[in-house]
């Protein structure tokens, strides 16, 4: 009798917990961004963000140590790949340098004037304090929020290139949706040829494989090694909340069949989405979307 009672209670508790989880799931999925559960999350983020920031600083030396071990393991393999990439880039630089001397317009395209543009967009330095452990979400939390001038839809970059966009904010923190998230999308163009497209995730869970889709038919096919930058255009077909000429990544694979059928090529982002630390939020919306219509 006692065992049956225990089993009944155990099943009742299990059922209750599962029901609670399903109710939460249904309510969260059904409500809008201003709903109660979303508000609770934002409240928790506001309360714990300062604590997380301090704690993140405390564990940073250990993260760096482990990161160093990981980098050392990968260094050998990376070295060969980087040498090859370096050779490609050197040839690109050689090809571009002649044009650069004669064209101020190309100076801008090449990003030589980029720093000044970004500086006028209200950059705010931030640190990544939390990252999602699942393969399905690609978000990070940063330690700057509305109190620092950060707003929803502000683009986020780091020293390598574009990272993503701010999706949620509180006073002391914000959530950044990375380029590698399936919900993310950026209007882009080839830096050299101006061919437009739309960068989105290629393989969920793979931070090194993005797709540049919606490449117009009939244009010169992109080449492996070509740089992809943000387009910053406001054309309805390629809407963008990102400023122009921010480096996104490099073309890694061009399959003629795939290009013909799906109008897409594969690119690898410059930024290492699995190892983000210091980032910059561009907080001045008035200077966005001013890029050339490619």
């Amino acid at each position: 009798m006692h065992d049956r009672k225990v089993v009944r209670r155990r099943r009742a508790v299990l059922g209750l917990l599962v029901a609670c989880a399903l109710i939460l799931l249904t309510a969260y999925f059904g409500e809008g961004a201003g709903g109660g559960l979303h508000s609770i999350q934002r409240g928790a983020l506001a309360v714990f963000s300062p604590i997380e920031s301090v704690a993140s600083d405390a564990v940073k030396p250990f993260r760096d140590l482990f990161g160093w071990f990981g980098d050392t393991f990968h260094a050998k393999g990376e070295n060969k790949k980087l040498k090859k990439e370096n050779a490609q880039l050197r040839s690109q630089v050689a090809a571009l340098s002649g044009d650069l001397r004669t064209s101020k317009q190309l100076d801008k395209i090449a990003g030589l004037d980029g720093n000044a543009n970004l500086g006028s967009m209200g950059p705010v330095d931030a640190r990544v304090i939390l990252a999602s452990p699942t393969l399905w979400y690609s978000t990070v939390n940063i330690n700057r929020g509305t109190g620092d001038g950060v707003h929803v839809d502000d683009p986020v970059i780091n020293g390598d290139g574009l990272i993503g966009i701010v999706t949620k904010t509180v006073s002391d923190g914000a959530q950044v949706l990375l380029l590698t998230d399936p919900e993310s999308g950026v209007s882009a163009r080839m830096a050299d040829t101006g061919i437009p497209g739309f960068v989105t995730t290629g393989s969920p869970g793979n931070p090194n494989d993005l797709l540049m889709t919606r490449i117009p038919r009939g244009v010169r096919p992109p080449k492996v090694g070509e740089m992809v930058v943000t387009a910053g255009t406001t054309l309805p077909a390629f809407p963008s909340q990102y400023p122009p000429r921010i480096p996104i990544g490099v073309v890694t694979k061009v399959d003629p069949d795939e290009l013909d059928a799906s109008q897409q090529v594969h690119i690898r982002p410059y930024a290492n989405m699995h190892n983000l630390d210091v980032v910059q939020v561009l907080t001045k919306p008035s200077t966005r979307s001013t890029g050339p219509a490619a």
Binding site: V13, L14, Q41, S132, Y137
Partner: peptide, 29 residues
């Protein structure tokens, strides 16, 4: 045991989803 394990799973899932602003309830489930 199973009851404490399940309750712990629910609680940790709730904290993770809240901290990461993810869909609440899925990790708990």
């Amino acid at each position: 045991g199973p009851v404490t394990g399940a309750a712990m799973g629910f609680a940790i899932g709730l904290i993770v989803d809240t901290a990461l602003l993810q869909t609440m309830g899925l990790t708990s489930l």
